[in-house]
């Protein structure tokens, strides 16, 4: 028989890991693919290294777990905010702060493009911060 206190801790850790994974999947896996899909014809690639993927995973899961474990502690609110701000900064860094750049050949001419979609990116992040736990 597992004591109820340990059960609570295990539940909090599981919840934190799941929330961290949810952030990871939405921000690191889905959002860059979604943006690359919108601008599909421009063949935009966000160069994310394996190391960045791992750092993002540790960060989101770690902060998610800490927030969940300290749910009833006064530290939980700043930790939650910190987790969201760090997550947003990481996403912005991965997406080059919303600056899309590249070169496309059109009718024998090379066109270098630079598109600033930071407004849209900030709106997506703000929206997700309000909506996600």
């Amino acid at each position: 028989m597992i004591p109820p206190k340990i059960k609570e801790v295990i539940k909090a850790i599981t919840e934190g890991v799941l929330i961290g994974l949810l952030y990871y999947v939405v921000y690191i896996l889905i959002l860059p693919k979604l943006l690359a899909g919108i601008f599909g014809e421009l063949k935009i690639v966000f160069p994310i290294s394996l190391r960045t993927y791992l750092i993002a995973l540790y960060l989101f899961v770690g902060l998610g777990t800490a927030t969940s474990l300290l749910k009833n502690h006064p530290l939980s609110l700043p930790l939650k905010l910190l987790s969201k701000v760090l997550g947003a900064l990481l996403v912005l860094a991965i997406l080059n702060f919303g600056i899309l750049q590249g070169t496309i050949p059109v009718m024998g001419v090379q066109i270098d493009f630079r598109i600033d979609i930071s407004v849209l990116l900030y709106a997506i992040l703000l929206f997700s911060m309000l909506m996600f736990p």
Binding site: V109, Q110, I111, D112, I115, V119
Partner: peptide, 12 residues
């Protein structure tokens, strides 16, 4: 809302 800059290079 979205600043765009296009640089057109030909011959290179």
């Amino acid at each position: 809302l979205y600043p765009v800059e296009l640089k057109i290079r030909s011959g290179t």
